[in-house]
Design a binder for these strands. Sequence first.
DNA 1: GCTAAACTAGACAGACGTGTCTATTTTGCA
DNA 2: TGCAAAATAGACACGTCTGTCTAGTTTAGC
Lengths: 184, 184
Amino acid sequence: MRDSAVKDRILDTASRLFYDQGYHATGINQIIEEADIARASLYNHFTSKTELLLAYLDRTHEDWFLELDRYLAALPTPKEKLFALFDHRIQRQRKLKYKGCHFNKITAETCEDEEVFRRVKMHKERFRQTIRDLVGQTDHRRMMDDETLADTLFLLLEGGISVGAMYRSSEYAEKARTIAAMLL
Amino acid sequence: MRDSAVKDRILDTASRLFYDQGYHATGINQIIEEADIARASLYNHFTSKTELLLAYLDRTHEDWFLELDRYLAALPTPKEKLFALFDHRIQRQRKLKYKGCHFNKITAETCEDEEVFRRVKMHKERFRQTIRDLVGQTDHRRMMDDETLADTLFLLLEGGISVGAMYRSSEYAEKARTIAAMLL
DNA sequence: GCTAAACTAGACAGACGTGTCTATTTTGCA
DNA sequence: TGCAAAATAGACACGTCTGTCTAGTTTAGC
């Protein structure tokens, strides 16, 4: 079992459970049960539940941008890519049953863990920067400067996802997209 | 002890802990310890931890709008009131150490509890309606129709608070206010 | 085929979770 | 002042939590 399939199965299962039912509501016992692995295997690959959480955040972050890049790659113009940011997350939320942003969820559950905080902030900052770069390459209506427009799009989208989790709906994320279209 | 001070102390303590460290991370034992009340007293006033959670949401909702109404009452124009929505929540988040919206936090922790969901949605919907009403009374630049403007302000503010929790900062809520000023 | 690493099952420790119960004391009011 | 309601302390049941450990089995690579 080189590049252990076991480790992947642990992380897959933990990720699913952490997101679906929450970090604190998920116990090690449930993870080993559903991943169908031995208790010692888990503690062989991860020294603690906290390490597992950090691995979950790291992998989610990587996958998240890989998926996004793949989605954007097909599109020719920066403006289309900007719209695609909305579309991609709307589709994603639909698939995830509107449980909201992974990083927002973890922030809501964990307090005072600097390692968690660092990862969450880095993830969001990179996303914001992605928007900022695309805005810089876009011919927009110049209703506001590039920086402000990027912030606006970022806030609309984050707001849409956050509200979407509370409404269990993509309604507001779609409204955010419509509003973005008026500004671009 | 009429209108039991004990019950208040329970709810005060539970509310503080639910918000500060999370619902699942807070145990009954810690609540009775910090509230300095007997175990049986808690279960006399609340049948279960879930009931305590619902009471927490109900009271938070009521207090939230009472506080907001008091804040808005002093202001003469609807436009000033709209800005005050931002100011009020920014100040509040500063006081709460940027842990974000109570209802957003609970949504992130609890899945599939319809009673929780109902309360969260009702709270947000009422807030959105508050914005909508104020927009209807405001002479704004007509860059968009009233409904869309209200949605925009709602999304900007919710986004600002949500991002603020992940950045532990009021930076983006303040940016949201600045953007709102450009649209109003 | 041998060896070491990886995986397995499962017992265990010790803390903590929620909720119930008893028995006693305090409190508020008529 | 007397009595019912409300509060107290704390034991208890029973489950779950994280993390450790032992001992046996499977697997991969030389």
